[in-house]
């Protein structure tokens, strides 16, 4: 067994062990079942909930909000990153803002967004978008910074125009960072939308979890929570797998 398979197996083993430990702790009463549901029941609850119309509607609402916010953040973040990379002085001036961005909880702007966009899906989309945008923008800047200058010179030696230089040299060279940005954007859009729903809005999965908590419906709360966490972990794992498949040969040193 190679080292990397051993690592993966241990990782699965540890995860499984933690789940079993929680299960045992709940069943034996070390952790009160009123506080935490045993994982097996969380899973059963999740499956039951996912067969109800109401929950499916919430899932659809949340996922579509996340999808729109994510796509907008990736496209606009990339474009803004490219533009900012071309304006070094402006970039230096707004650098402190970018560096402090994630220290401000963005959903404090929710009331403003409601006032701007009205009570629709738009304020939530905007929250997800604002949460994800800088991740993509910063990743784009970093990717462009890290294109080795010699590759630009190779492009000039091959007498490529600026469009072909961008498509054939700059973009592939920046791709690892861009992919990182895409991955983070999806995670942040999801975090932003769920948090917005949880605290402020009246719909979606985040709201459903908060509502279940407030009405002491632990079974629903844990079932939905498990679904949200699994969705995040699975989508992130899928993107990581795709990424490493793209990168595997490139970085196998």
């Amino acid at each position: 067994m190679t080292r990397s398979t051993r690592i993966v197996c241990t990782r699965w083993g540890v995860s499984l062990g933690l789940i079993l430990l929680l299960e045992a702790a709940c069943r034996s009463g070390v952790v009160p079942t009123l506080a935490v549901l045993p994982p097996s029941e969380m899973f059963a609850a999740m499956l039951e909930l996912l067969s109800t119309e109401e929950v499916l509607a919430n899932v659809a609402a949340t996922f579509s909000t996340v999808a729109v916010a994510f796509l907008a953040a990736v496209l606009i973040g990339f474009a803004a990153g490219v533009a900012l990379h071309g304006l070094p002085r402006f970039r230096r001036a707004i650098d402190p803002l970018l560096a402090s961005y994630y220290s401000v909880p963005i959903f404090v702007f929710y009331p403003l967004l409601v006032a701007l966009f009205g009570l629709s899906a738009l304020p939530l989309i905007a929250i997800g978008f604002l949460a994800a945008l800088p991740a993509m923008l910063i990743a784009t800047l970093l990717g462009l910074d890290r294109v080795p200058p010699v590759l630009r010179r190779v492009a000039r030696m091959h007498r490529l125009g600026s469009a072909r230089t961008a498509a054939l040299v700059i973009l592939p060279a920046a791709l690892p960072n861009l992919f990182q940005g895409i991955k983070l954007s999806l995670a942040y859009a999801f975090i932003g939308v769920i948090a917005g729903e949880f605290i402020l809005s009246g719909g979606g999965l985040g709201y459903a979890i908060a509502y279940a908590y407030e009405s002491f419906d632990n079974r629903t709360m844990y079932g939905l929570m498990l679904f949200v966490l699994l969705s995040a972990v699975i989508s992130n794992t899928l993107l990581s797998t795709w990424e490493s498949r793209l990168q595997r040969r490139r970085w196998r040193a």
Partner: peptide
């Protein structure tokens, strides 16, 4: 990368 807010309850 998970939405930790769901863990608050």
């Amino acid at each position: 990368t998970i939405p930790k807010v769901t863990l608050y309850p």
